[in-house]
Design a binder for these strands. Structure first.
Lengths: 340, 340
DNA sequence: AGAGTGTGTGGGAGCGCTCCCAAGAGGTAC
DNA sequence: GTACCTCTTGGGAGCGCTCCCACACACTCT
């Protein structure tokens, strides 16, 4: 039904090879011939068959975006949608397509991995927010599949793009300290994700840098969800922090609710800083002071690194860390130091 | 580098064809041979080359999810993430993969359409929330590509899965009327999307069914974004509605903000109903009374319909309409009828 | 004993493309 | 006139698979 090279060739009065050359922009075709061939292509509405082409070239121009099981339930957090959108745009710009792989169970993981990567349908993979020690990473390394992680990986061989979670958090906590706060709490992210770990580390370092003690009762574990932010804040209140660093904006939204229910005003009674600067951060009451991470840029860089890797394999691991920026809104206030 | 059928065949001491039969579960292979072949496959770690297979079978087992330009900026609305997640899960269950195509400009649209559909990399397409008269629809129809729309299409030939936007809205507005409200406003969704149109139509019908006039000053146009909900509510206030139907939860969140700023309490001063029941609806202050649409089921049904269409083409257009459900929370109150 | 009927199995062809090698055309230099 | 280029072009091979046809072998029935 669909046209083939051969038929277009007949139409243009040349051979299959010549048409192929024209399509692939090979230089050694006479200008006049080239013109004739393009005309035949245009007239016939011919489109090369991508699958046949892939069989020969060993390239599908499809990359996978893999979002491992642990985070699919975070999908209502706009982080992933924003990442996805930016990655798709970056891929399309380079003539690549993005295939989505979310998996909810680790049986799925195996299955999808086998089906896609090993079956050679993907040229490469972007792994978003892998948990530490994700078996996917070792599979990819073993099989030599080009891939880039969004979020740092502890493995030195892994190419990755990440934001400076430690530095960003330090900035945020420094800000609170500069405002006079001395009892600063934190509700953490998932401890099995690097972003969760690094933000906790940044909090610790900021306190230590100012000679302040890190008190366990001021640290409560969360998992990046709004519910965990609300619950975390509730558990934190008895310890009477005057300011709290929430590991994500989504969690801060939960915290705001907990505080409203507890009758505490933000920022008058308690100050809040968080991380991400997703759209909701500027829409809360009060708007959140938060650490902005350039999600879109991360996605674009990850795609860029991946395509480089696909097109010229074997370059040394590239580990990009993007800077963050503190966006000051209205969720923090000066702490009156009553008796210094 | 990678193994081929031929090599596995040599390993098992049979022919290429026999190995192919075993892999494709063809019945006419002796049990003993089958066992030997599976063992050779297992030992060698052989994986069939999906692209080569596709070249022969004309099936890639990849379907596209196309989200047209007009809605990509809504991507922080959890509707699409939820849809995407459910569609991915449904595809994977059937051994299909989902390819994501978002396009921001209509030049992209052409480009991606050509590259994917016409180049035969996709077995079928799910079109999410096409605007009316989207040229994509006519392209797909012309080229005979199997596709299913999420959201109704005016074209009779199009397979689609939609929720009963009209009926759902009627339920919501009926609820307000039953509570005694007589001045009921509406902030609409995008008028170029069927969901936007149908929800407006439902509002009109509910009023008419109760013999109430449809007053233009009580209808304000929005576009499904939170910002438009906020602005819309502000513009509606001078008309003094005692209740408002917001075309989406996201817009209702905006409306709540506008009301808080205007010093109006919900539901004491003004009642609110909306549509979608996304997670945020139960997390607002007060929680929203809203019309629940089963996004996940819509995605699953769309995938199911699409795969049927791919596997046995030519069945008549299927137009599924799912029922909605009114979820009553705390954003509506009885209207005291002062002087009846 | 010969024809008929299955059941398993092997091998050729072909999917639509790219890539390589060879060969024709046209020129230039000796 | 011959040798030797360079520039274009054509055709064969082959990517790794599936599908079809043919054939070998074991039975059964006349």
């Amino acid at each position: 039904m669909a046209l083939t090279l051969e038929e277009v060739a007949r139409l243009a009065g040349v051979s299959r090879s010549t048409v192929s050359r024209v399509i692939n922009d090979h230089p050694s075709v006479r200008a006049e011939t080239r013109r004739r061939v393009w005309e035949a292509i245009r007239e016939s509405g011919y489109r090369p068959h991508a699958v046949a082409r892939s069989l020969v070239t060993k390239r599908t121009h499809i990359v996978g975006m893999v979002i491992p099981e642990v985070v699919t339930h975070l999908f209502t957090d706009p982080f992933f949608p924003i990442l996805l959108r930016a990655a798709t745009a970056a891929c399309n710009e380079q003539g690549y397509q993005l295939m989505l792989s979310l998996f909810s169970s680790s049986a799925d993981r195996q299955e999808i991995y086998q089906r896609l990567v090993r079956n050679a349908y993907l040229d490469g993979v972007i792994v978003a927010s892998a948990a530490l020690e994700d078996p996917l990473i070792s599979d990819l390394l073993r099989d030599g599949v080009p891939f880039v992680c969004v979020g740092r990986s502890p493995d030195e061989r892994v190419h990755s793009v990440d934001v400076d979670n430690i530095g960003g958090t330090q900035m945020a906590v420094d800000h609170l300290i500069r405002l006079g706060h001395r009892r600063i709490g934190m509700v953490t992210g998932r401890p099995d994700m690097t972003a969760g770990q690094d933000r906790l580390e940044g909090y610790r370092r900021a306190l230590s840098a100012h000679g302040m003690p890190v008190e366990p009762e001021l640290i409560v574990e969360g998992d990046f969800t709004e519910a965990s932010g609300m619950a975390g804040m509730q558990r934190l209140l008895p310890a009477e922090p005057s300011a709290v660093f929430m590991a994500s904006d989504t969690m801060a939204v939960g915290a705001l609710k907990a505080l409203r229910r507890a009758g505490r005003r933000v920022p008058q009674d308690i100050s809040l800083v968080s991380f991400d600067d997703i759209p909701v951060a500027s829409a809360t009451e009060p708007p959140l002071t938060t650490v902005r991470q350039p999600i879109g840029r991360m996605a674009a860089l990850a795609v860029e690194a991946l395509l480089d890797l696909i097109e010229q394999p074997g370059s040394g691991p590239r580990r990009i860390v993007l800077p963050t920026q503190l966006v000051i809104r209205e969720s923090c206030a000066k702490k009156e130091v009553v008796n210094p």
